[in-house]
């Protein structure tokens, strides 16, 4: 359909000046079945929460059904409060409960708070034994803080990825601090990831949500030469070209699909990209599945 088939009402135009909309051959778009495209790809959501932004796990499941997401790796990091062992155990319990409610569809990532070193290490082992896969951590301590070293070594031995909240913005973490907007100072920034990834080349790091509102170009450029840093494309932001940029900078193996509960954007930004079929499959599913495979948790 085109404007040629529509009657345009409103102010009278000076026909000599304006090309006008009449008399042209109608040119219209070919039909495009978006939902068919959505359903074409198997998807593993590598970054999503339950009992955080949009309520109980039923809401996750509703969007899994809506958008054909096969599996979600849910987490409940300590986003407020002190982050005592009691706190992180409580959140991990919530995650475990969601897992048990929807077995096979939801798998939990465990969270800890590294100043509680002994409790954190114990918690990791306990949650792995309960079937959780992967660590999700937040803004309590920077990812390259020495407090993380034993935790990272534990994760290396488990062959599981360390998924860390991150941000990249003017006025954060030493980057142009005159623009400080009061973001928690221990939030990990790309430089922190680069630092720890060099120290532990055998560890795997997931730089959270390049669509989380930060400067994704900055982050991706920082990680070009660090093969053990992966990014997920989740977040409420879906800038055109972001996924293409990430793949161009990091290669097609280091980019994961993720929603961070922003479901529409999460799928839209990948489908709207220029990625090939094989790259889409990798980003939606295979790349994260390969990580899971290392610890024997891959999805068949």
């Amino acid at each position: 359909m085109s404007l040629a088939g529509l009657i345009v009402s409103g102010p009278v135009l000076d026909a000599t000046e304006f090309g006008g909309h009449s008399g042209f051959m109608p040119a219209s778009a070919r039909p495009y079945d978006l939902m068919k495209d959505v359903m074409k790809y198997r998807k593993i959501d590598s970054h999503v929460h339950s009992d955080l932004y949009d309520g109980p796990p039923e809401n996750n499941i509703a969007f899994m059904d809506r958008l054909g997401i096969e599996k979600m790796f849910i987490s409940r990091p300590v986003t407020s409060g002190e982050g005592t062992p009691k706190d992180f155990r409580h959140y991990n319990d919530l995650t475990l409960k969601a897992m048990k409610k929807f077995p096979g569809r939801l798998t939990g990532q465990f969270t800890v708070n590294v100043p509680y070193q002994k409790e954190s290490l114990e918690e990791i082992q306990r949650r792995v034994d309960q079937g959780m896969v992967g660590l999700k951590v937040y803004t309590q301590v920077k990812i390259n803080d020495p407090l993380f070293y034993p935790i990272i070594e534990k994760m290396i031995s488990l062959k599981m990825i360390i998924h860390m909240h991150s941000h990249c913005q003017l006025g954060l973490g030493g980057y142009r601090m005159k623009y400080d907007t009061g973001i928690r100072p221990n939030t990990s920034i790309p430089e922190d990831f680069a630092d720890i990834a060099k120290r532990y080349p055998e560890a795997m790091f997931q730089y959270a949500h390049i669509g989380g509102g930060g400067d994704y170009e900055y982050a991706c450029k920082m990680f070009t030469h660090l093969p053990n840093i992966y990014v997920d494309t989740s977040g409420s932001n879906n800038p055109e070209g972001m996924v293409d940029f990430a793949v161009k900078q990091l290669g097609e193996e280091r980019v994961f699909f993720g929603s961070d509960n922003c479901y529409y954007q999460s799928v839209g930004k990948i489908l709207a990209s220029e990625l090939t079929e094989s790259q889409r499959k990798k980003v939606f599913f295979e790349n994260y599945n390969k990580i899971l495979e290392k610890s024997g948790n891959s999805i068949k």
Binding site: V38, E240, V267, S273
Partner: peptide
């Protein structure tokens, strides 16, 4: 909101309605 945002998310909000 093209070309700033991706071309499909706005459409997905409509087409994925049950």
């Amino acid at each position: 909101h093209s070309p700033i945002l991706d071309y499909l998310t706005g459409q997905l909000r409509i087409e994925s309605l049950q």
